[in-house]
Design a protein around this nucleic acid. Structure first.
Length: 318
DNA sequence: GGCGATGTTTCCCC
DNA sequence: AGGGGAAACATCGC
């Protein structure tokens, strides 16, 4: 479940606790989490800063490398939390600092990853489009939606480039916009009153503007509430001290099939569908389904020169 | 005990 | 290009 707000919550909390500390030891008995040599490579390195890029937690080391932590589905990073049964069973790696405190990586499903890469190998800049082929995870990450680079104009151009893609899978693609996941995409689409299977090219200017506002709004709200925790079962999201988030109480559609749409004056039952193999929730009244098989023509209001440019562009060889 | 579903990402096929 | 499905793995609920 960790999406941008959850990862941001972890990164901020961890940053306060480990910034400036030196790694005394790294221990992991699980081959999947990182190379066996990671311990030798990070021992003695100081953590100069902690940040987030997309859904990755980024630890800056004093040797021009970064440590990337991908939580994937069930990964967790906890700091000096009292070990309990859950910790014992899903513990995958432990960082011990010189002051004796510890940061643990837990992951019941073992999808998470810890990587050490040269700093220049990862596109850390907010709007970097560069990629690095040697990076096995998140080789390519798109724009950061909470930076000034993410504007309505950017989103308009992005949708023009990917006009035939269905909206929801497109928003989940980390190489376009980095950090959105199943929950926040669903919430943003509801807020913008746009159906998940509309194609990107079919949106009106007003809809693109609403969606832009909605994406930023739901992410900021998620961060403000320290992320979302669903059932608090093993592997569910918890912060670095094991506490739940609060965003789940504010969900409008996610996991609310059958419940009334919370929009004032609506109240229609929320529907669950499957889009791109992911559970998808929407309000059938607020989010109008696209016409089946409809080819969305350029809007009738399109300026003549825009239409000509678009025709010429379509016919050009690449 | 079996089956289906679960937040993410990658990869392969059509 | 984009959609569908499966896989990575473990657990939970019915």
């Amino acid at each position: 479940m960790p999406e941008l707000p959850e990862v941001e919550t972890i990164a901020r909390q961890i940053a306060e606790r480990v910034r400036g500390k030196t790694i005394a030891a790294y221990r992991s008995d699980w081959a999947g989490v990182a190379a066996r040599t990671l311990g030798a490579r990070v021992a003695g390195r100081r953590i100069t800063g902690v940040g987030r890029r997309g859904k990755l937690i980024v630890f800056h080391l004093d040797d021009d490398h970064v440590l990337l932590v991908s939580l994937r589905m069930t990964g967790r990073l906890v700091y000096d939390a009292a070990p309990n049964g859950e910790v014992d069973r899903s513990l995958r790696a432990t960082f011990t600092f010189h002051d004796g405190t510890r940061m643990r990586f837990l992951d019941s499903r073992k999808f998470g990853r810890i990587l050490r890469v040269p700093r220049g190998d990862v596109a850390l800049d907010a709007d970097a489009e560069v990629r690095h082929a040697s990076l096995p995870l998140h080789a390519r990450m798109g724009i950061e939606p909470l930076t000034e680079a993410f504007t309505v104009e950017w989103l308009t151009a992005f949708f023009a480039r990917r006009s035939r893609a269905a909206l929801k899978p497109l928003l989940l693609d980390q190489s376009g916009i980095a950090g959105l996941g199943n929950i926040y995409v669903g919430e943003a689409l509801w807020r913008a009153r746009v159906h998940p299977t509309r194609t990107a090219g079919s949106l009106t200017r007003a809809e693109v503007a609403r969606l832009h506002e909605a994406i930023v709004w739901v992410l900021q709200k998620g961060i403000r509430l320290n992320g979302a925790t669903l059932g608090f079962a093993m592997g569910d999201f918890a912060d670095v001290e094991g506490r739940r988030g609060g965003m789940q109480r504010e969900f409008t559609v996610y996991a609310r099939a059958g419940e009334p749409c919370p929009r004032p004056g609506c109240g229609r039952a929320i529907v669950r569908t499957v889009v791109g193999a992911r559970g998808t929730f929407h309000c059938p009244k607020c989010q109008k389904e696209p016409e089946r098989g409809a080819v969305h023509p350029r809007r009738a209001t399109a300026k003549p020169e825009a239409a000509r440019r678009s025709r010429a562009g379509a016919g050009e060889p690449r």
